[in-house]
């Protein structure tokens, strides 16, 4: 383990036991590392296990989800084996999670100033005056226009883009080192998404944050991430530095996703998201291979030779 790594997953497996009769292994043997100050994009379709990974890292898996194997190492400590007390110290202050649907995350009955203030009071033990100052500062940092008067606004008075900025503010207010963004801009208009992404990019640079950036949009990931991992049915099928991935995508699932995004009917016919149609390097005896091959430095593909 080197000092340049912020967070790494080692063979993480997440299970939802007993669901619909048999158990669902939502995340299977997933490993990756995120360097300090870098953004790892995690792309996959609905149900691939993205949110399960995010919630495993913050140990907030929805019932009956549980981590059944593997480690999550953050700053040389294993989150999986932390006590609840230790965990609380990390969550909110060191690691934070940004979710979609900002409005459902905010309490409709409290002003945004109050909600943000409560966070810093709990985690950073600030008094009322200090909390107010911290809140105003973070609202300004996320470029909420008129932030002094928005301090006393209620969530319903905000547009979707504005509410998403408040959620980002909430995730940043305790100066975390690691941020997980789970589909945080889906549902926003492209122009608003663009502004929010620019804002996040600036904050990442300024604060030297490390980020796990979860999205279904490979176009967005292409422009925002340093590394990219493709998740398919709970497993990483390809992971690489961003340029290496786009210069040389290899896994049929990667090629299928790129073809879908490019609306290429021709190539969608060639590359399918159905493993049955993949060649035997990628799918053999009814299974994807257990191991990955390094095709270039840091560029791994789930296949056999």
């Amino acid at each position: 383990m080197t000092d340049s790594i912020s967070l790494s997953l080692n063979n993480l497996t997440v299970d939802y036991p007993g669901y619909k009769g048999s158990g669902t292994i939502a995340v299977k043997d997933v490993s990756f590392s995120i360097e300090k100050g870098k953004v790892l994009g995690l792309v996959g379709e609905s149900g691939a296990g993205k949110t399960s990974i995010a919630r495993a890292i913050t140990r907030q898996l929805v019932e009956p989800g549980e981590i059944t194997a593997g480690e999550i190492i953050f700053e040389n400590k294993n989150i999986v084996s932390m006590s609840q007390k230790e965990l609380r110290k990390y969550l909110g202050s060191q690691i934070s999670l940004i979710v979609p649907n900002p409005k459902s995350e905010l309490d409709p009955l409290l002003t945004i100033g109050r909600q943000l203030g409560d966070v810093v009071k709990t985690h950073l033990k600030l008094n009322n005056k200090e909390a107010r100052e911290a809140v105003l500062k973070v609202l300004e940092a996320v470029q909420i226009p008129d932030h002094n008067s928005r301090y006393s606004a209620y969530p319903h008075e905000l547009s979707g883009g504005m509410a998403q900025r408040v959620i980002i503010a909430m995730s940043l207010i305790c100066n975390p080192k690691f941020v997980i963004s789970d589909d945080a801009t889906s549902g926003l208009d492209v122009t608003v998404q663009r502004e929010i992404m620019k804002l996040m990019q600036n904050i990442i640079k300024e604060k030297d944050l490390s980020v796990l950036f979860i999205t279904r949009d490979i176009g967005l990931a292409a422009h925002f991430c340093d590394h990219l991992g493709l998740l398919f049915r709970g497993q990483i099928v390809e992971i690489a530095p961003i340029n290496s991935f786009f210069k040389n995508p290899i896994h049929p699932y990667s090629l299928a996703l790129l073809s879908a995004f490019s609306h290429s009917v021709k190539w969608r016919k060639v590359y399918s998201t159905d493993p049955q149609k993949w060649s035997k390097e990628f799918f053999i005896n009814g299974n994807v291979p257990d191991s990955m091959i390094e095709v270039e430095k840091g560029h791994l593909v789930r296949m056999i030779r």
Binding site: P145, S159, G161, M162, V190, T191, V192, Q193, R194, E195, D217, I218, G219, L220, A222, H223, I242, N243, F246, L258, F261, S262
Partner: peptide, 26 residues
């Protein structure tokens, strides 16, 4: 122009044109 320049094509080398960006919200 603002809408179209916000389209993100799946290729990191095609950068967004920032010259005519829209600011703020509707």
């Amino acid at each position: 122009t603002g809408l179209l320049s916000s389209i993100l094509l799946p290729d990191p080398e095609i950068v967004m044109d920032e010259s005519l960006e829209l600011s703020g919200e509707i």
